[in-house]
Each structure stands twice: as C-alpha cells, then as structure tokens.
Design a protein around this nucleic acid. Structure first.
Lengths: 210, 210
DNA sequence: GGTCCACTATACAGACCTGTCTGGTAACGT
DNA sequence: ACGTTACCAGACAGGTCTGTATAGTGGACC
C-alpha cells in the first residue's frame, strides 16, 4: 500500500537545551504566512512582519538567516499541512476507491470557498522567485509531493492510462487557478468530474482517438 | 459565426500631430515585457528598464503615468497577441471542427517548448498584484477573453455539456502551470486530450456518474 | 547569587525603489 | 530663422528594503 503523504514532524530537531524555539518563531511564521499569501512575498517587508508578530528584528535573524529562509519555511509549512490535510481526508475512505483520488479536490472545494482564497501558494511563489534557490527548491519538493500523492492514489484505485498523474496535477492546478482568478468555485467541481473520468478511464487517451 | 477574438488595433488612437509614439514607447514595452516575464514584476526596477531600453526616465514618465501603467500596458499587449495568435491558428481550420477548440492547446504546446517559458503572464502577475487596480483589471479582461474564446469555439463545435468553457479554462490554466513548474511538456498534450474529451462529450459530467 | 540565553528595542548602513526636476539636443514643419 | 516636440542625461528627494550592531531585560537553571 502506498504511503501517500509523509505527515511531517512539526517539531524541529531538538537542540541541546531549549534552543531558540519558544514562541517567536511560531508567531513569525504565522504572520509571514498570512501576509505572504495575502499580499505577495516581495510586497511584504521584514519590518512589517516583525511589527505584526511583536518580535524584534534581531530575533527574526536569530531564527532565519534571511528573508529567503523565512519564505522557504513558510512554503515548507504549507506543503506539510497540505500533506497532512489530504492524508486525514483520504484515510477514512475505502482503500482503492476512486474517492480517495478525488479527496484533494474535495479539500480544495472547501478552500476556494473560504474568504481570502488567493490560489496556490506555490504557484504564486514561483511567479516571484524564478531563480534557483531555497524557494525554488521548496516549490519543486511540493510539486513532487503532490504528483506522488496523486500517482499513488491513482495506482491504488487501479487507474490505468499513461500519465494519469500528470492529468490529475493539471486538473488540480487549473482548478486552483481558475477558481481564484475567475472567482468561480465551479472550476473545482468541474475539475473533480474530469478527474473522476481520468481515474475511471472514461476519457479518450491521447493518440487513440478517432 | 462567433468572432472568437477581436484582433486589436496595434496603434493607439492617433494624437493630434505625432504624439509621443515614436520609438521609445515601443522599446520600453519590449524591454519591460521581457524583464517582467522573466524575472517577475516587483523584481524589476524602472531604472533597469530604462537602461536596457536606452530611454531617459523622463521619457518613460511621459508615456506612462507610472510603473503600474507600464505593467498594464505589458499585459494588454500580451492579451492582444494571444488573441491574434489564436485567431491566426483557428482561422484556417474548418468551421465547427473540434480542432478549432483545441487550437489554443496546440499553440501552447509550442510555447512551453521554447526556452524561457515561465508560465502564464497573467497568472504570474496576479500573484504579485492582489489588490484591485489597473493590473487586476487587465487580468480580468484577459480571463474573460480566453473564456469567451473557448466558449465560442466550443459552441461552434456543438459541444453540449454544462460549463464546457470552465472545463476548458481549467485545462488550459493547468497545462500552462504544470508544464512550467514541472518542466513537463506532456502536461499540455494531456490537457489537450482531456479537452478533446470535453468537447466530444466523452467524459462523464458531474452529477450523472454512478 | 551568578550564568546563560531567548528575547526586546532601536539605531544604523548601504542599497534600491519610484517619481520629479533641470537642462540640453536634434529633427521637423512653417 | 523659429517654435514645437520627442528625446537623452543625470541629479535629486523621500521613502523602503534587507541585514547588522548595540544595549538592555527577564526567566530558567545551577
């Protein structure tokens, strides 16, 4: 049985005594996540993050080597949460069922309906960080995680066609993007239906049509 | 017959005599488009644009009220070019054929294979400009244009299902995004095949499955 | 008490940002 | 010749950015 996600250890490896892991780091990450997601990364300065988090600047730089590392930590947290949220939603469903493959779409349907939804944090971050680096690495990691999850779930469900994982990722990306930019939640339900077709093999694979 | 696109007038409305529309504006737009797309909008400063365009700063501000207007002009140009490129590709195909609906995917397949492809300029811009304004308006305009094009072409081809336009937009967005972020051109061919299913009505619509 | 350390507060450096302003040049039509 | 205009070159203002340095506070543990 495929292990879809790797629900992460939320605690960093404990340092010798207590380490700089009390409250400031958590507050910084929460504020950074909120602001980065809502307003964009380059648009949010360090000064504002520390002000809203009630943290001194020196403390931020004691926890993170710089802004880029803070951004990377924000994305890591988002990726881990996605994985555990999906795992929690997949777990109660009967193994091998198509519904398990569609679980991420059901999760997404809830997300896009919440106020403040602004699309995929990784797609958004990629728009701002084209160069190789910590941020690009986290984006790549997350993409592989999502693709791996879809492929594992599809394989479990016995989905046959070539590139089923790619098709599901395309539908998932498109659903997030269109639901956001067009303010249209039906993008997710439409994508979910198409994903069901892909899993059931109802659609006509490329090259075999006509 | 539906007019899919409105191939735009490339010339702005002529001012009284000559107006400030000689060469500097074009160079500015070309350089801005290249840099904004490649590196992100907030990451590119005015100084660099005017330096690479060989244009004085005062000239830039004579043509555009500010950076935001330059960004909006960049997006307008991209949208217009998309529309005319699609129109050029659709036009020779037999009216009412499914191939016409798939033409944007064929265009995209070429785009994602070119070096420097970095996804959809509008999705990327939206990540950086969440607030209402000129930029958001151009993004909305383009989204409506794309959706309208797909809907018109699908209607021409006799595609029946509800929300065919939404499904096609989702597939198109997902294809652009996944092909870019995963460096995987097969995202486009997969999306094209799914789009063909949508147009032919081969897939199972939501709510009628089981 | 004494030591350690996570933390606060603030000032600062150096770079970069957008946008304005001044001044000069060259082509063009009259 | 003359005015208009499209343009270039560069200084400047005022703000913001990241990151560092300095000085002090309060709790935990020995």
């Amino acid at each position: 049985m495929a292990r879809v996600t790797d629900p992460p250890a939320t605690e960093p490896p404990a340092t010798g005594r207590a380490g700089p892991r009390t409250g400031a780091r958590q507050r910084l990450l929460e504020v950074a996540a909120r602001l980065f997601y809502a307003e964009g990364i380059h648009a949010v300065g360090i000064d504002r993050i520390i002000a809203e988090a009630g943290v001194a600047k020196a403390t931020l730089y004691a926890h993170f080597s710089g802004k880029e590392e803070l951004v990377a930590a924000y994305l890591s947290e988002r990726s881990d949460r996605w994985a555990s949220d999906v795992a929690a939603r997949v777990e109660p469903l009967p193994p091998g069922s198509p519904e398990r493959v569609l679980a991420p779409f059901d999760l997404l349907a809830e997300r896009v309906a919440t106020p403040g939804y602004r699309g995929c944090p990784f797609i958004n971050a990629a728009a701002e960080f084209p160069a190789p680096g910590l941020v690009a690495d986290r984006i790549t990691d997350h993409r592989e995680r999502v693709r791996g999850a879809f492929e594992a779930l599809a394989a479990e469900a016995g989905a046959a066609g070539r590139d089923v994982g790619t098709d599901l990722v395309v539908l998932y990306d498109g659903a997030m993007t269109a639901a956001h930019l067009d303010a249209d939640p039906s993008a997710v339900t439409g994508a979910r239906a198409l994903a069901a077709s892909v899993v059931s093999g109802a659609h006509v694979p490329a090259g075999t049509a006509g």
